[in-house]
Amino acid sequence: MAKILRRERLVPNIHLLEVHAPEVAKKCKPGQFVIIMPDEKGERIPLTIADWDIKKGSITTAFMIVGTSTHKLSLLNAGDEVPVFVGPLGMPSKIEQYGTVVCAGGCFGIAAIYPIARALKKAGNKVITLLDVKANFLLYWEDKLKEVSDQFFVSARDSYYDCKDYIPKALKNIIKKESEINRVISIGCTYLMYTCSEATKTSGVKTMVSLNPIMVDGTGMCGACRVTVDGKTKFACVDGPDFDGHLVDWEELFTRRKAYFEDEVQSLCYWERNQFP
């Protein structure tokens, strides 16, 4: 059992979860994830690590409420326990001195990209952070990310921020403006990562994405998370989660992510009926 230290709503539908897991904190690196199970009947779901504190022995993640398991997570409070919190899993993101790097995040990916931006900055890169939100009130961790960025942009569909374009256009503009971009890293929903990869295709800037296929065990046993990259079958939990976005078979990923859509709805209805009779 792992103890919840903090659970708070960051913005509507996105929550932060800080869990006591000293062994994971001691070992984790940017880009890795944990598998969590909200209760004995829940699913094992992967969450990207957003921060950690070795002294406190804690791991912080952010998640968006989608299905039953994430709904359950959103109702946990400090002092509650979860039966499964295992990690750090997956290969860490490659942190090198690339030069200029754009960190493009959206949704839960705003939190997930934070440790990567921080590590890239520390490694001597010029870090340009580009966040995407539907509206200004959905933005969080702005200060944290500004602190580790040389330049900071937000694209939002309302009038609060300068840029109203959806992230790929904003990304293209940055590439056009900067003399040289050496790498783009994109984390968020599948569509965001896909569009970011498409946006950099013509310029040929290497674009790494943190894939989020459905997982079960998360430790290289079940094969649920298979993705096709450069024509080869890869397993996101042990070969990834980071892959070259220009080589990913996106259509397959979109299809496979929707595999349980109807079941998810059924599960949620069932749970809600029992939760709020």
Binding site: K41, E43, C222, K258, A259, E264, S267, Y270, W271
Partner: peptide, 29 residues
């Protein structure tokens, strides 16, 4: 990679470990 094609490891894990045979009482489908 079509939907509905499982490795035995995944199929068995879903059913035996995660108790998908008791879905939706258990969350894993």
């Amino acid at each position: 990679s079509l939907i509905g094609i499982y490795s035995a490891n995944e199929y068995l894990t879903r059913v035996n470990l995660m108790k998908a045979y008791e879905f939706p009482e258990y969350d894993t489908p």
